[in-house]
Protein backbone atom coordinates (compact mmCIF):
# COMPACT_ATOMS: atom_id res chain seq x y z
CA UNK A 1 0.00 0.00 0.00
CA UNK A 2 1.18 3.53 -0.59
CA UNK A 3 1.23 6.38 1.86
CA UNK A 4 4.02 8.12 -0.04
CA UNK A 5 5.71 7.33 -3.33
CA UNK A 6 9.05 5.56 -3.39
CA UNK A 7 11.04 4.28 -6.37
CA UNK A 8 10.39 0.65 -5.40
CA UNK A 9 8.77 -0.55 -2.19
CA UNK A 10 10.91 -3.63 -1.75
CA UNK A 11 9.75 -6.56 0.29
CA UNK A 12 10.82 -10.21 0.47
CA UNK A 13 8.26 -11.36 -2.09
CA UNK A 14 9.39 -8.77 -4.65
CA UNK A 15 13.07 -9.62 -4.09
CA UNK A 16 12.42 -13.34 -4.59
CA UNK A 17 10.24 -12.64 -7.66
CA UNK A 18 12.91 -10.41 -9.23
CA UNK A 19 15.74 -12.81 -8.38
CA UNK A 20 13.90 -15.70 -10.10
CA UNK A 21 13.21 -13.46 -13.10
CA UNK A 22 16.84 -12.41 -13.44
CA UNK A 23 18.19 -15.93 -13.02
CA UNK A 24 15.75 -17.40 -15.59
CA UNK A 25 16.44 -14.62 -18.10
CA UNK A 26 20.22 -14.93 -17.72
CA UNK A 27 20.09 -18.73 -17.96
CA UNK A 28 17.95 -18.58 -21.12
CA UNK A 29 20.19 -16.08 -22.94
CA UNK A 30 23.44 -17.70 -21.79
CA UNK A 31 22.13 -21.18 -22.65
CA UNK A 32 20.99 -20.06 -26.11
CA UNK A 33 24.36 -18.47 -26.89
CA UNK A 34 26.37 -21.41 -25.50
CA UNK A 35 24.37 -23.92 -27.56
CA UNK A 36 24.82 -21.67 -30.60
CA UNK A 37 28.59 -21.48 -30.08
CA UNK A 38 28.92 -25.23 -29.57
CA UNK A 39 26.76 -26.31 -32.53
CA UNK A 40 27.72 -23.69 -35.11
CA UNK A 41 30.53 -21.41 -33.90
CA UNK A 42 30.24 -17.95 -35.48
CA UNK A 43 33.05 -17.24 -37.92
CA UNK A 44 32.80 -13.46 -38.05
CA UNK A 45 31.75 -10.71 -35.64
CA UNK A 46 28.37 -10.09 -37.37
CA UNK A 47 27.58 -13.82 -36.99
CA UNK A 48 28.33 -13.64 -33.29
CA UNK A 49 26.15 -10.55 -32.92
CA UNK A 50 23.40 -12.33 -34.87
CA UNK A 51 23.47 -15.18 -32.34
CA UNK A 52 23.04 -12.73 -29.45
CA UNK A 53 20.29 -10.99 -31.46
CA UNK A 54 18.34 -14.24 -31.73
CA UNK A 55 18.93 -15.08 -28.07
CA UNK A 56 17.63 -11.73 -26.78
CA UNK A 57 14.82 -11.51 -29.36
CA UNK A 58 13.41 -14.94 -28.58
CA UNK A 59 13.85 -14.27 -24.85
CA UNK A 60 11.81 -11.04 -25.07
CA UNK A 61 9.13 -12.88 -27.06
CA UNK A 62 8.84 -15.65 -24.45
CA UNK A 63 8.80 -13.12 -21.62
CA UNK A 64 6.00 -11.15 -23.26
CA UNK A 65 4.09 -14.38 -23.88
CA UNK A 66 4.35 -15.37 -20.21
CA UNK A 67 3.36 -11.86 -19.05
CA UNK A 68 0.22 -11.99 -21.19
CA UNK A 69 -0.67 -15.45 -19.86
CA UNK A 70 -0.50 -14.35 -16.20
CA UNK A 71 -3.69 -12.22 -16.22
CA UNK A 72 -6.12 -14.83 -17.59
CA UNK A 73 -4.38 -17.66 -15.69
CA UNK A 74 -4.88 -15.80 -12.40
CA UNK A 75 -8.56 -15.30 -13.25
CA UNK A 76 -8.98 -18.98 -14.13
CA UNK A 77 -7.01 -20.39 -11.20
CA UNK A 78 -6.06 -18.63 -7.94
CA UNK A 79 -2.78 -20.56 -7.73
CA UNK A 80 -1.33 -18.23 -10.38
CA UNK A 81 -2.04 -15.08 -8.33
CA UNK A 82 1.53 -14.83 -6.95
CA UNK A 83 2.78 -14.34 -10.52
CA UNK A 84 0.56 -11.27 -10.84
CA UNK A 85 1.99 -9.58 -7.76
CA UNK A 86 5.12 -8.17 -9.35
CA UNK A 87 4.17 -8.34 -13.02
CA UNK A 88 5.29 -4.74 -13.55
CA UNK A 89 8.91 -5.64 -12.81
CA UNK A 90 8.53 -8.52 -15.28
CA UNK A 91 7.33 -6.00 -17.88
CA UNK A 92 10.21 -3.59 -17.24
CA UNK A 93 12.75 -6.42 -17.55
CA UNK A 94 11.12 -7.49 -20.82
CA UNK A 95 11.53 -3.95 -22.15
CA UNK A 96 15.21 -3.99 -21.12
CA UNK A 97 15.82 -7.31 -22.93
CA UNK A 98 14.05 -5.90 -26.01
CA UNK A 99 16.21 -2.78 -25.74
CA UNK A 100 19.37 -4.92 -25.71
CA UNK A 101 18.01 -6.72 -28.79
CA UNK A 102 17.60 -3.31 -30.49
CA UNK A 103 21.13 -2.21 -29.46
CA UNK A 104 22.57 -5.46 -30.85
CA UNK A 105 20.72 -4.87 -34.12
CA UNK A 106 22.38 -1.43 -34.39
CA UNK A 107 25.71 -3.04 -33.50
CA UNK A 108 25.21 -5.63 -36.27
CA UNK A 109 24.97 -2.80 -38.84
CA UNK A 110 27.85 -0.84 -37.28
CA UNK A 111 30.10 -3.94 -37.33
CA UNK A 112 29.63 -4.08 -41.09
CA UNK A 113 29.91 -0.33 -41.51
CA UNK A 114 26.40 -0.37 -42.97
CA UNK A 115 24.33 1.79 -40.63
CA UNK A 116 22.99 3.89 -43.55
CA UNK A 117 21.48 0.66 -44.91
CA UNK A 118 19.22 0.48 -41.87
CA UNK A 119 17.95 3.99 -42.50
CA UNK A 120 17.44 3.12 -46.16
CA UNK A 121 15.52 -0.03 -45.18
CA UNK A 122 13.23 1.86 -42.85
CA UNK A 123 12.56 4.67 -45.33
CA UNK A 124 11.94 2.53 -48.39
CA UNK A 125 8.32 3.65 -48.49
CA UNK A 126 7.03 1.44 -51.36
CA UNK A 127 7.91 -1.63 -49.25
CA UNK A 128 5.31 -0.59 -46.68
CA UNK A 129 2.64 -1.50 -49.25
CA UNK A 130 4.00 -5.07 -49.56
CA UNK A 131 3.29 -7.98 -47.26
CA UNK A 132 6.28 -10.32 -47.45
CA UNK A 133 8.87 -7.57 -47.99
CA UNK A 134 7.31 -5.28 -45.40
CA UNK A 135 10.09 -3.55 -43.36
CA UNK A 136 9.69 -5.86 -40.38
CA UNK A 137 12.19 -3.87 -38.32
CA UNK A 138 9.66 -1.02 -38.23
CA UNK A 139 7.21 -3.40 -36.51
CA UNK A 140 9.81 -4.30 -33.90
CA UNK A 141 10.66 -0.63 -33.39
CA UNK A 142 6.98 0.26 -32.89
CA UNK A 143 6.64 -2.58 -30.34
CA UNK A 144 9.76 -1.33 -28.53
CA UNK A 145 8.32 2.20 -28.31
CA UNK A 146 5.09 0.85 -26.81
CA UNK A 147 7.05 -1.26 -24.31
CA UNK A 148 9.06 1.85 -23.40
CA UNK A 149 5.84 3.82 -22.79
CA UNK A 150 4.49 1.03 -20.58
CA UNK A 151 7.76 0.65 -18.65
CA UNK A 152 8.07 4.41 -18.18
CA UNK A 153 4.52 4.71 -16.79
CA UNK A 154 4.63 1.53 -14.72
CA UNK A 155 5.25 3.31 -11.42
CA UNK A 156 2.39 4.03 -8.97
CA UNK A 157 3.04 7.76 -9.50
CA UNK A 158 1.52 7.41 -12.97
CA UNK A 159 -1.36 5.38 -11.58
CA UNK A 160 -2.23 8.34 -9.34
CA UNK A 161 -1.77 10.90 -12.11
CA UNK A 162 -3.61 8.99 -14.84
CA UNK A 163 -6.25 7.26 -12.61
CA UNK A 164 -6.47 3.44 -12.55
CA UNK A 165 -9.02 3.35 -15.39
CA UNK A 166 -6.87 5.36 -17.83
CA UNK A 167 -3.67 3.65 -16.67
CA UNK A 168 -5.20 0.22 -17.37
CA UNK A 169 -6.44 1.41 -20.75
CA UNK A 170 -2.94 2.65 -21.75
CA UNK A 171 -1.35 -0.56 -20.50
CA UNK A 172 -3.66 -2.61 -22.72
CA UNK A 173 -1.24 -1.34 -25.39
CA UNK A 174 0.81 -4.43 -24.48
CA UNK A 175 -1.57 -6.45 -26.69
CA UNK A 176 -0.73 -4.24 -29.67
CA UNK A 177 2.98 -4.57 -28.82
CA UNK A 178 2.64 -8.36 -28.74
CA UNK A 179 0.82 -8.43 -32.09
CA UNK A 180 3.60 -6.25 -33.57
CA UNK A 181 6.29 -8.55 -32.15
CA UNK A 182 4.59 -11.65 -33.60
CA UNK A 183 4.42 -10.05 -37.05
CA UNK A 184 7.99 -8.71 -36.65
CA UNK A 185 9.19 -12.33 -36.28
CA UNK A 186 6.79 -13.73 -38.90
CA UNK A 187 7.91 -11.26 -41.57
CA UNK A 188 11.54 -11.17 -40.45
CA UNK A 189 13.29 -14.15 -38.93
CA UNK A 190 10.67 -16.68 -40.10
CA UNK A 191 11.27 -15.73 -43.74
CA UNK A 192 14.94 -16.75 -43.60
CA UNK A 193 14.94 -19.51 -41.02
CA UNK A 194 13.57 -22.76 -42.46
CA UNK A 195 13.48 -24.61 -39.15
CA UNK A 196 9.92 -25.46 -38.05
CA UNK A 197 10.86 -24.19 -34.58
CA UNK A 198 10.14 -20.55 -35.45
CA UNK A 199 6.53 -21.06 -36.70
CA UNK A 200 5.95 -23.46 -33.80
CA UNK A 201 7.26 -20.91 -31.29
CA UNK A 202 5.12 -18.13 -32.80
CA UNK A 203 1.96 -20.15 -33.31
CA UNK A 204 2.27 -21.96 -29.99
CA UNK A 205 3.00 -18.80 -28.01
CA UNK A 206 0.31 -16.67 -29.56
CA UNK A 207 -2.16 -19.58 -29.60
CA UNK A 208 -1.80 -20.13 -25.84
CA UNK A 209 -2.11 -16.41 -25.05
CA UNK A 210 -5.18 -15.95 -27.27
CA UNK A 211 -6.88 -19.14 -26.03
CA UNK A 212 -6.39 -18.18 -22.36
CA UNK A 213 -7.80 -14.69 -22.94
CA UNK A 214 -10.77 -16.03 -24.88
CA UNK A 215 -11.59 -18.68 -22.24
CA UNK A 216 -11.26 -16.21 -19.34
CA UNK A 217 -13.35 -13.60 -21.21
CA UNK A 218 -16.06 -16.12 -22.06
CA UNK A 219 -16.28 -17.27 -18.44
CA UNK A 220 -16.57 -13.69 -17.17
CA UNK A 221 -19.28 -12.88 -19.71
CA UNK A 222 -21.74 -15.19 -17.91
CA UNK A 223 -21.55 -13.13 -14.71
CA UNK A 224 -21.71 -9.83 -16.58
CA UNK A 225 -24.90 -10.85 -18.38
CA UNK A 226 -26.72 -12.01 -15.26
CA UNK A 227 -28.14 -9.78 -12.54
CA UNK A 228 -31.31 -8.04 -11.43
CA UNK A 229 -32.36 -4.53 -12.54
CA UNK A 230 -30.11 -1.79 -11.18
CA UNK A 231 -32.87 -0.20 -9.03
CA UNK A 232 -33.90 -3.29 -7.04
CA UNK A 233 -32.16 -5.03 -4.13
CA UNK A 234 -30.01 -7.98 -5.14
CA UNK A 235 -30.28 -11.27 -3.30
CA UNK A 236 -26.93 -12.64 -2.17
CA UNK A 237 -28.17 -15.67 -0.20
CA UNK A 238 -28.16 -16.83 3.42
CA UNK A 239 -25.23 -15.46 5.47
CA UNK A 240 -23.76 -18.97 5.70
CA UNK A 241 -23.60 -19.15 1.88
CA UNK A 242 -20.74 -16.64 2.02
CA UNK A 243 -17.67 -18.60 3.15
CA UNK A 244 -16.08 -16.99 6.21
CA UNK A 245 -13.34 -14.41 5.44
CA UNK A 246 -14.20 -14.43 1.74
CA UNK A 247 -16.80 -12.86 -0.53
CA UNK A 248 -19.59 -13.60 -2.94
CA UNK A 249 -19.70 -11.39 -6.02
CA UNK A 250 -23.02 -10.05 -7.31
CA UNK A 251 -23.87 -7.47 -9.96
CA UNK A 252 -26.91 -5.52 -11.07
CA UNK A 253 -27.66 -5.61 -14.78
CA UNK A 254 -25.24 -3.24 -16.51
CA UNK A 255 -23.60 -2.29 -13.22
CA UNK A 256 -20.17 -2.86 -11.71
CA UNK A 257 -19.65 -5.93 -9.55
CA UNK A 258 -20.18 -5.82 -5.80
CA UNK A 259 -18.16 -7.93 -3.35
CA UNK A 260 -20.14 -9.04 -0.29
CA UNK A 261 -17.70 -10.18 2.41
CA UNK A 262 -18.39 -12.09 5.63
CA UNK A 263 -16.11 -11.93 8.64
CA UNK A 264 -17.75 -14.07 11.33
CA UNK A 265 -21.17 -12.52 11.89
CA UNK A 266 -20.26 -9.20 10.24
CA UNK A 267 -21.18 -8.70 6.59
CA UNK A 268 -20.11 -5.78 4.42
CA UNK A 269 -20.49 -4.91 0.75
CA UNK A 270 -17.90 -2.91 -1.20
CA UNK A 271 -17.17 -2.34 -4.86
CA UNK A 272 -15.27 -5.22 -6.49
CA UNK A 273 -12.75 -2.69 -7.83
CA UNK A 274 -9.62 -2.09 -5.77
CA UNK A 275 -8.67 1.61 -5.54
CA UNK A 276 -5.12 0.75 -6.64
CA UNK A 277 -5.42 -0.97 -10.05
CA UNK A 278 -9.08 -2.03 -10.16
CA UNK A 279 -8.08 -5.51 -8.99
CA UNK A 280 -10.93 -7.96 -8.20
CA UNK A 281 -11.37 -7.43 -4.45
CA UNK A 282 -14.09 -10.09 -4.25
CA UNK A 283 -11.50 -12.72 -5.16
CA UNK A 284 -9.41 -11.67 -2.15
CA UNK A 285 -9.73 -12.63 1.51
CA UNK A 286 -10.12 -10.95 4.88
CA UNK A 287 -6.66 -10.85 6.44
CA UNK A 288 -6.01 -9.22 9.84
CA UNK A 289 -9.63 -8.01 9.83
CA UNK A 290 -9.23 -6.20 6.49
CA UNK A 291 -10.44 -6.97 2.97
CA UNK A 292 -7.19 -7.70 1.10
CA UNK A 293 -6.83 -7.33 -2.67
CA UNK A 294 -5.50 -10.51 -4.29
CA UNK A 295 -3.35 -8.55 -6.73
CA UNK A 296 -1.08 -6.33 -4.63
CA UNK A 297 -2.34 -6.72 -1.05
CA UNK A 298 -4.10 -3.32 -0.68
CA UNK A 299 -6.30 -3.46 2.43
CA UNK A 300 -9.65 -1.93 3.47
CA UNK A 301 -11.86 -2.10 6.57
CA UNK A 302 -14.98 -4.22 6.11
CA UNK A 303 -17.11 -1.71 8.03
CA UNK A 304 -16.60 1.35 5.83
CA UNK A 305 -14.24 0.47 2.94
CA UNK A 306 -11.50 2.79 4.29
CA UNK A 307 -7.85 1.72 4.17
CA UNK A 308 -6.30 1.44 7.66
CA UNK A 309 -4.22 4.47 8.74
CA UNK A 310 -1.87 5.94 7.60
CA UNK A 311 -3.30 5.02 4.18
CA UNK A 312 -6.05 7.10 2.67
CA UNK A 313 -7.76 4.99 -0.04
CA UNK A 314 -11.54 4.63 0.28
CA UNK A 315 -13.96 2.29 -1.45
CA UNK A 316 -17.56 2.75 -2.47
CA UNK A 317 -19.81 0.75 -0.09
CA UNK A 318 -23.35 -0.62 -0.43
CA UNK A 319 -26.32 -0.92 1.94
CA UNK A 320 -27.21 -4.42 3.14
CA UNK A 321 -30.25 -5.95 4.82
CA UNK A 322 -31.35 -9.34 6.08
CA UNK A 323 -34.75 -10.26 4.63
CA UNK A 324 -36.38 -13.63 5.44
CA UNK A 325 -32.95 -15.06 6.28
CA UNK A 326 -31.38 -13.82 3.04
CA UNK A 327 -28.72 -11.14 2.66
CA UNK A 328 -29.75 -8.47 0.15
CA UNK A 329 -27.64 -5.63 -1.21
CA UNK A 330 -28.77 -2.29 -2.63
CA UNK A 331 -26.82 -1.82 -5.90
CA UNK A 332 -26.94 1.99 -5.62
CA UNK A 333 -23.46 2.95 -4.33
CA UNK A 334 -22.89 4.98 -1.19
CA UNK A 335 -20.15 7.65 -1.11
CA UNK A 336 -16.66 6.12 -0.61
CA UNK A 337 -15.89 5.37 3.04
CA UNK A 338 -19.55 5.28 4.22
CA UNK A 339 -20.07 2.73 7.04
CA UNK A 340 -22.57 0.11 5.80
CA UNK A 341 -21.63 -3.30 7.24
CA UNK A 342 -24.25 -5.17 9.28
CA UNK A 343 -24.12 -7.79 12.03
CA UNK A 344 -26.22 -10.89 11.48
CA UNK A 345 -27.47 -13.20 14.25
Amino acid sequence: MSVGLRAVQWNRQKLVYDAILLVCTTLYIAGYVLIGYSTQPPEKLPDAIDLWLRATGSCAFFMLTVILCIGPLARLDRRFLPLLYNRRHFGVLTFLVALVHFALMLDWYVAQDALPNLAAELTKWPDYAKFIDFPFKALGLAALLILFLLAATSHDFWLLVLTPRMWKFIHMGVYVAYALVVMHVALGHMQDERSPLVPLMLGGGFGIVAALHLIAGWRERKLDRSGAPADSWLTVGPPASIPDKTARIVAAKGGERIAVFRDGNRIGAVTNLCAHQNGPLGEGRIIDGCITCPWHGYQYHLADGCAPPPFSEKLVTFRLRLERGLIEVDPRPLPPGTPAAIVVP
Binding site: K168, F169, L214, P280
Partner: peptide
Protein backbone atom coordinates in the same frame (compact mmCIF):
# COMPACT_ATOMS: atom_id res chain seq x y z
CA UNK B 1 -11.37 -4.88 -13.79
CA UNK B 2 -14.23 -2.59 -14.69
CA UNK B 3 -17.13 -3.78 -16.86
CA UNK B 4 -15.88 -1.56 -19.73
CA UNK B 5 -12.41 -3.05 -19.43
CA UNK B 6 -13.80 -6.59 -19.57
CA UNK B 7 -16.01 -5.74 -22.57
CA UNK B 8 -13.02 -4.24 -24.35
CA UNK B 9 -11.04 -7.41 -23.67
CA UNK B 10 -13.81 -9.53 -25.13
CA UNK B 11 -13.88 -7.43 -28.30
CA UNK B 12 -10.11 -7.03 -28.72
CA UNK B 13 -9.01 -10.64 -28.28
CA UNK B 14 -11.12 -12.40 -30.92
CA UNK B 15 -10.19 -9.69 -33.47
CA UNK B 16 -6.51 -9.83 -32.52
CA UNK B 17 -6.49 -13.64 -32.55
CA UNK B 18 -8.00 -13.87 -36.04
CA UNK B 19 -5.87 -11.05 -37.49
CA UNK B 20 -2.58 -12.42 -36.13
CA UNK B 21 -3.40 -16.03 -37.00
CA UNK B 22 -4.12 -14.92 -40.58
CA UNK B 23 -0.98 -12.78 -40.69
CA UNK B 24 1.31 -15.59 -39.47
Amino acid sequence: MTRTHRSLHRIVWPVLAVAIALGV
